[in-house]
Every structure is written in structure tokens, then in C-alpha cells.
Write a protein that binds this DNA or RNA. Sequence first.
DNA 1: CGGCAGTTTGATGTTACTCAATTTAAGTGG
DNA 2: CCACTTAAATTGAGTAACATCAAACTGCCG
Lengths: 238, 238
Amino acid sequence: MNGISLCAACQHRGLGFCGAVLETPPTDPRPGVEKHWPRHQLVRAGENVLARNQVSEDIFVLCIGWAFRFFQLANGRRQILRFLLPGDLFSAASVFEQRYHFSVKALTEIQVGRFGRAGVQARLAANPGIVAALARSCAAETNDADELLAALGQRSAEERIAYLFLHLMKRISALNVIREQRYRLPLRQQHIADAAGLTAVHVSRVLGHFRDRGVVELSEGVLQVRDLSELERIGSLN
Amino acid sequence: MNGISLCAACQHRGLGFCGAVLETPPTDPRPGVEKHWPRHQLVRAGENVLARNQVSEDIFVLCIGWAFRFFQLANGRRQILRFLLPGDLFSAASVFEQRYHFSVKALTEIQVGRFGRAGVQARLAANPGIVAALARSCAAETNDADELLAALGQRSAEERIAYLFLHLMKRISALNVIREQRYRLPLRQQHIADAAGLTAVHVSRVLGHFRDRGVVELSEGVLQVRDLSELERIGSLN
DNA sequence: CGGCAGTTTGATGTTACTCAATTTAAGTGG
DNA sequence: CCACTTAAATTGAGTAACATCAAACTGCCG
């Protein structure tokens, strides 16, 4: 396996088996999968991967790093629709739709895997694992979007931010082993604002309150949870 | 075809062919589909069809009438996540997930078609039409949810309500032939409030402004559009 | 040292919520 | 046809939450 660093992310979600970005494919791949290696692409933090309404023959999977999908509105504001974590499809619907209805921006430096749509569709029938992965992805997207809708529509600034933290903590925990009460969250306050439908100024104030009350603390990309049950009291949907 | 009234809704979206609720199945069904008739169920306006976290072996399709899926929150408020119109699957993910993550309530009297999940899954591989219908459904759900997220997160009360009207007008138009500038919208102001993340009182005020300014008028279940371009100026996402 | 991006803080403004009263419309039973 | 009831919509007054504007502060990097 020399010359190869595996892409654990793409591997474990069922779409296929990913090789490294910059390395050559393995000389001795496992039989049956050697034709399905995606192309990879490196994107720097802050750059756009995809623009709204863009047509692409590829299905995108985030392998390394964080990104988010969003709408840019005419009034200059933007809504972050979903944070993308390693292993996430940009969207389940993209397996069937060639037009992306959202934009995607890299939050950190990221590595993106690109599968040809035709190839994946061809493998769908024969490979129930892919279908299952897609179904999981679709269900997770819908569920998360619905929860965020409820948060934006019905809940206060504190509650939305607490919800957002809990949501991200849960998704991070599903990837890594949980590291006590510290989570790497590569977000600026502006990102929290754009996801929660608030201004960055107000996010700063709420985070200040959380810090003063010993609930959570976010600084230098690390979320430090001081009182989990309080955070859950504030942020859980019911 | 006597004794039978066809269910046009379920028919044209690709999941299968629906018979009537209360009538007997046809004595001479088209070959190859006779085993796929769903069971039907009549639900009165205001009644719940599904509860959050309910497990069901069935996939639900709305055949006649209006419904909505929603979250009931602990603080007594609710968020309407999506209005369901004739022909809509309750959710695309339900084809694979046996647990429903939302509640569904009938807005009018409705007729619901129920397909056994196992049967639909079995037909998936052989019938690309079903897969295509599912993919369309998934894409529409995701897209609509994302648009609503942007509306709730970034836009004013007027803009959200205008957006909601335009969104529903578009979906209604896709079903029926457009009937000039009048749309049947069986909504109370409370439903608009719950979908737009506002209070019913405030919805009443905004609708009053719309009426005074000659934009739109909603009364007795009919939306009368007086100035479409103004409504679009207010409510379109960009 | 200067510049820049991000955060914090204060003062003020606006939007939408809350509470409460009134009006309207649609039954229902006498 | 007329009380009476009930759900929905409207209106007003007061308030809370969040936005906006502007200034100061922090850490980082060239």
C-alpha cells in the first residue's frame, strides 16, 4: 500500500472506495472496485466549490475538512443550509439531478471526491449498499433540515445557537471518538449567524452570555462544553 | 370501469396505480399492476394522520386534499415543515426508513394511499419509473426545505408570507390548469403563521397591509392575486 | 510598525411578540 | 327569524428581542 493514503471518509459511507488525492491509485486494488475510484480535488479554505444552479456530471463527497452549502440572497445576506462534514455527500438528490440548487463553500481546506454520476447510477441496481447509503443520506438531510426549520421558525437566538452546537456535536461524535467536552469547530461567529438567521453582533452577545454563565465557550476553533445539561435544556427541540 | 373512481393523484407521480378508496378494486385491472394497489384511508380535516417517531410499514401518498407535516415543540408552538398537496409522498425518505420523524395533520378532508414498504422496495430494482419518481420527490423536498430555511432565516415577515404564497401558487399550478389569479388555499392564518415562523396576530396585520396595498387578498380559502409582479418583488428569493 | 479580520461593547431603532378587547362569520337550537 | 355559541380575524397599546450603526479592542501577519 505504499504511495497510497486511503480516504477513510468516502470509504465508510458506502458510495465506493476512495484513493488519495495526490497520490497514484494503488497498483493492486481490491477486485471489483478498481474502476470506481473518484477523482479528487483540493480546495482552499474560503473558496467556493460549487455555485447555485451549476450543472455538473459529478457527484461530490467531502472527504477531509469542513464545508457548508448555502444560498446567497439578493440583499447580500446568506443562509447556511447545512454544514458538510467528512463523509458527507453534498446532497443525496445530486445522484439523480444534474443541477445543484445550492452553493458550496469550503470552511477549512478540504478534499473533495468526485464520482461520475453515470457510473454511480449504473452501480445502483447491482449494489444495494449504495442504495442504503443514499437512503441514509437523504433521511439525514431531510431530518436535519426539518429540525433547523423548527429552530429558525420557533426559537430564540440562545436556543438556536445551543441547538446548532448540539447538532454539530452529535455529528462530530458520530465520526470520531468523543474527546471529553472539547470539539473542534472551525466556525467564525459570522457562520453561526448565517446558519441561525442572526447577525454576527448578536451571536457575539449570546456567546458572551453563555461564557459568563458557564454553559459553553467557543474560541480559536474549539468548543468547550462546561455544562452539557444546561446546553441541552436550552437547545434541545423538546 | 363501473364501481371504480380512479385516483389520479397517485397515478401520475410514478409510485403505482391507485384505485378508489371506498369502491371495490377493478375486476379487470391492467396486467402487471394488479398486486400493487394501495390501501386507502379517509381522514377528516384537522385530524392527525401520523405522529412524530411513529413506526409504520407503509409509505403514504396524499391522493386528495391538503395536509402538512410539522413538529410540535415543547413550548406549545409548532413549525409547519411542508404542505402536502395531492400526489405528494409524505416523504421520500419513508421508502427506506420505517420511522417517521415528523407528524402529519389533515388540513382539509383528505384521502391517503398506503403502499406496503416491502412491496415498493421490491419493485424498485425492476421499475426505473419508481426510482425516478422518488428522486424527483427527494430533490423537490430538499430544494423546498432549503428555500424555506432561507426565508425563515433571512427575510422579513412580509417577504416570508409573499414567498409562501408564491411557493404554493407554483405547486398548485403544476397540478391544475392555472385559473387566472385565483387559487384555492385552504389555510387559516394560524397555518401561515406556523409555516412562516410568525404569530397569527402578525400575519393578520401583514395580510391587511397586502390587502390595502392591492397586492393579494386571502379570504374564505381563496387567494386573490391583485398585483403579481409586486408579490414577486417582495417574495422571490432573488 | 501598520494593516486587516474578527470580536466586543454601547447606544439607538425597528420588527415582531404579547396581552387584551372587539368584530366578524358561521353555525345551532329554540 | 332570533338568541347564543364558537372559531377566526382584526385592532390597539405596551414590550421584548434582535438589528443597525459606530467605535474600540484583539490577535496575527507582513
